[in-house]
Amino acid sequence: MHPGSLLATISPHFDMDFLLKFVFPPSGALLGGLAITIYVAVAAQLIGVVLGVLSGLAGMSRRALLRSLNGVYIWFFRGTPVIVQIALLYYGTPYLLGVDLFPLDIHIGGLDLAGAVLAGILALGVNEGAYMSEIVRAGILSVDPGQAEAAKSLGMTYRLTMSRIVLPQALRVIIPPLGNEFNNMLKTTSLLSIIGVEELFRNASSVAAATFKPFEPLLGVSVYYLILTTIWSTIQGRIERRLGASTVRVDQPGLWARMVGLRSPSSGGPAR
């Protein structure tokens, strides 16, 4: 049976051929959208991890000022919608500062970048940092305090203790929710469509508008998101298994369990 025939019997409007052509072979524009989605997600996640480590450490600092500044950061970015933050950064700050922060074309190094893409990466990255902060903090707290004491007793400084002893062990606790965060990030990039970033969703929306077919392009682009998140799940599983090998063995859910979401609540990130 043709896979589309069930949908066709439900609705006479469904155009299977259109869907298949949209998905494969993908148009140049769709491939471009795919590329933007991937690199925006990777770049924003990297910023998020760096900010998350800094913020997580700041949250455990002995200095009260640092702790409270960090508290405000997390409070604001977890307490407001990311779509508002995106608009605030892209439309709001240039207006406020009277400087065109995000022009149409930006050249950084050898890289050509649309201003909206840069704004999107920054907004998603800074937002992600606030979530990663809690994950990093939980990871650090999961490490036996005796580890830091042993490191200190050997004459290691705070920096060495963290970078060589505590953070590597915290990774075991950080990696699973970090993977979930990146899975989220791959999908959250679609919000950048509101500031005109030509990522997957905006691309599909344009096709939908131009062809008066609101269903097929969006279903088609869903296939692309599914491919991305499924590939990522596989990679994540491998990373986690490798991390588990050198220390305590952790039961990892298989690909199927991850896909359908049969995961223990403890391995998830903080609720959004």
Binding site: D144, G146, E149, A150, S153, L154, G155, T157, Q169, T247
Partner: peptide, 24 residues
Amino acid sequence: KERNIARQRQEIGMVFQRFNLFPH
């Protein structure tokens, strides 16, 4: 300062009840 304390600790070895070996 933390750095000075770290230097002083280099002269003092410590063995803990629960070993505290680095598992990684």
